[in-house]
């Protein structure tokens, strides 16, 4: 039982990171039909922005975290929206998807060439102190990841459902034409979505890097897992992405411990196949029917 709890908490902490990245997939898809295959790199880049601020310009740690989030919102939010998505979305979903794949390569190679190909240690906000409760050892840093991720998710849900801007964003996601008729500033709402996505990706980056090290290739697996999490949970629901992320984090650990370490990577993909076969809208997603 102790082992199970240990696996569960560790899995939830990892899963929370997947969830933060997966939410981005669903947000962008809902408001602008953008599938962002550079999402993994969006989670990799902010850690390096913080490292550049700290090591090249000597900015204090906390200030460089704030700077990294702001720079990410500018670079991965505003610039991404207006330089890549804006001009390309008019040409259909496929050219945009291919462009995001190209963007992922560009970001990865840029970090490799301009910073380093080697993994970097990343300072942590919370100390690595161990807390042991009923035989379960959890580091404060790991609990912090889980707490920050969950608080971010709760705040996001509150923002989307409880504020006027959030409801306008939802209206834009559900039907941009009607939203525009009702006076919702659709373009601005779409930009907000990109900003939120960039901020969430930056949060995930700053949370995950102290534990798993910052490396230019981190986005490869993270992006793939977050994509699978979004599909498993439901691509058109934020809560689906959260559930998908947490589920895969936990499942990965449980599969490694109780099934086989050798086949741990196969388990999320088997889950993906099962979901696509039996519940294509995802575990918490809603059915979408589009007029042709």
């Amino acid at each position: 039982m102790t082992d199970f709890l240990q696996l569960l908490i560790s899995g939830l902490a990892t899963g929370a990171i997947y969830a933060l990245a997966a939410i981005g997939f669903t947000l962008l898809w809902q408001t602008s039909q953008t599938i962002n295959f550079a999402q993994g790199e969006f989670v990799m880049v902010p850690a390096f922005l913080a490292l550049i601020a700290m090591r090249w310009f000597g900015v204090p740690f906390v200030a460089s975290l704030v700077l990294a989030i702001l720079a990410s919102m500018l670079l991965l939010g505003v610039a991404f929206r207006y330089i890549i998505v804006g001009p390309l979305i008019r040409r259909g979903v496929l050219p945009l998807v291919i462009s995001t794949i190209a963007l992922s390569i560009l970001l990865k190679e840029s970090v490799k060439d301009f910073y380093s190909a080697e993994a970097q240690t990343f300072p942590t906000l919370l100390p690595d102190t161990l807390i042991t409760v009923a035989g379960v050892s959890v580091s404060l840093a790991q609990l912090g990841v889980l707490a920050v991720a969950l608080v971010t998710i709760v705040l996001l849900q509150w923002f989307l459902a409880g504020t006027r801007t959030g409801r306008q964003m939802q209206a834009t996601a559900q039907n941009p034409t009607v939203a525009r008729i009702l006076g919702v500033p659709v373009e601005r709402m779409i930009l907000y979505t990109f900003l939120i996505n960039a901020a969430l990706a930056a949060m995930a980056s700053l949370l995950v890097s102290p534990i798993y090290l910052a490396k230019f290739s981190n986005g490869e697996t993270l992006g793939l897992i977050a994509f699978v999490a979004a599909i498993v949970g439901g691509f058109n629901q934020v809560r689906g992405a959260i559930a998908g992320g947490l589920l895969i984090g936990v499942l990965d650990n449980l599969a490694a411990a109780y099934v086989s370490t050798a086949y741990r990577q196969a388990i999320p993909l088997i889950l993906l196949v099962l979901v696509i076969l039996f519940r294509p809208q995802g575990l918490l997603g809603r059915k979408e029917e589009r007029a042709v």
């Binding site: 082992d3 696996l7 798993y212 697996t221 990965d252 650990n253 449980l254 490694a256 411990a257």
Partner: peptide
């Protein structure tokens, strides 16, 4: 990235 299960 996560070695929790392996260590257990």
């Amino acid at each position: 990235a996560d070695f929790a299960a392996d260590v257990i």
